[in-house]
């Protein structure tokens, strides 16, 4: 139980995917123009992540290591298509809003990353806890970012006007530049908060979160050593 909670909770803060690990940036940036979209995308990711973790973990003994990546991709793609169909059937406007980012969930490095790093090595229950935790963390982050951008960019939250008439929406916030800047500033604030804490503990300040997706980690070094 303890272990389950540990695997579940790490995705909520310690390894919060978009902020702490800086993973899965495309949907984070693209679909967070409104809180609603962020939430919807997050739900889709929760579903795919949890289920793909579950399936990969179930099949982990059957999948030959050589083609494991191909199998992970096939499994998550299947789930993505399923989510796509269900979304079309039950929430078409959301499907329209999210556009090609729904099919692109399949190349979200979080999904593959969790399959490779966790589900392939752990029993189904833990894998589900991990996927659920990560997914919820991802959803919360997306919703938060979406709310922020929606409020700033349109003066509404989940489509309801929340700012007074005096408020002139910063339209740029719901467009691409706003997405980048908003996320950048948020990351910086988080690091700042962490640094304040570290300072209290007498530790040296650290720099902002580093982008370090499993597959990209080594490339700077690789290129250097050529």
């Amino acid at each position: 139980m303890n272990r389950l909670w540990k695997e579940f909770s790490k995705g909520l803060w310690k390894e919060l995917p978009p902020f702490k690990l800086v993973l899965g940036l495309c949907p984070v940036l693209a679909v967070t123009n409104t809180a609603n979209n962020g939430l919807g995308m997050g739900m889709a990711v929760i579903a795919v992540l949890t289920l793909s973790n579950f399936v990969v973990s179930l099949l982990r003994k059957l999948i030959p290591p050589k083609v494991r990546i191909a199998c992970f991709i096939a499994i998550s793609a299947t789930l993505v298509v399923a989510v796509e169909l269900l979304m079309q059937a039950f929430s078409y406007p959301l499907y329209q809003q999210l556009g090609i980012f729904v099919p692109l969930i399949v190349v979200n490095c979080i999904i593959l990353g969790r399959s490779e790093a966790f589900a392939y090595k752990n029993p189904p229950l833990l894998a589900v806890a991990d996927g659920l935790g990560m997914g919820i963390g991802f959803t919360l982050s997306l919703t938060f970012l979406g709310s922020l951008r929606e409020v700033l960019g349109a003066g509404t939250l989940f489509g309801v006007a929340v700012m007074g008439d005096w408020f002139v929406p910063l339209k740029i916030m719901v467009q691409a530049p706003g997405a980048f800047i908003c996320l950048g500033v948020l990351l910086a604030l988080m690091t700042y908060a962490e640094n304040v804490q570290r300072k209290r503990k007498g530790l040296a300040a650290v720099q902002g979160a580093t982008h370090d997706c499993g597959s990209c980690g080594g490339c700077a070094n690789v290129a250097k050593s050529q």
Binding site: V22, A176, P177, G178, A179, F180, I181, C182, L183, G184, V185, L187, A188, L189, T191, Y192, N195, A205, V206, Q207, G208, A209, T210, H211
Partner: peptide
């Protein structure tokens, strides 16, 4: 600023 270094500034730059 320390907190801006790394990815945050990368994102802000991308925004600009």
């Amino acid at each position: 600023p320390m907190a801006m270094r790394g990815t945050p500034i990368g994102l802000v730059l991308a925004g600009l």
